[in-house]
Amino acid sequence: MRAERPIISHPERQVWTQQLTSITLTLGAWAMWGYLWLPALAVILWIFGIHLDSIYKVRVPDQSTLLLMILIVLACDAIVRNWAGYNRRRFAGKSRRLGSNAIPHPDVGKAFGVNDAATLSLLLQERRLSMYFDDAGTLIRVVAEGADKKEDPAAE
């Protein structure tokens, strides 16, 4: 099943000039894309005896360039396929490194400069908190919000 899509699409909220510009620019971009095919068109027309030499010189594909492009595509495929296979054989289903146990909360607190048990308890239990920082971004005070405010006992 595909996602329920909370999409917002209101093209009508753009003024008509914006809508017209979007469509015109996109048609222009497709025209540019079609223009890239001029060499192919020139060759097809040339086959039917229509020569565009006056406006466009038919460019015969450079064989070495085309060959290089084909090689690039094949090489990409080979590299991806072999690398994925190698990794699968080497790593699939095997854990080469140990995981890490969950870090105890006092150690988490230490990483942020919070060392006292009362503040740590406040952080884990209160549903509404305010935190204050100094200019360097260090946490300096934690206050529990609500009916009866509790303040971090280690507050400055």
Binding site: R127, R128, L129, S130, M131, F133, G137
Partner: peptide, 17 residues
């Protein structure tokens, strides 16, 4: 649960806290 910062500290700080 809600944490309030009185001043804008940035997304990284929000996630850290």
């Amino acid at each position: 649960r809600v944490i309030h910062f009185p001043e804008n500290q940035g997304k990284a700080m929000g996630q850290r806290m």
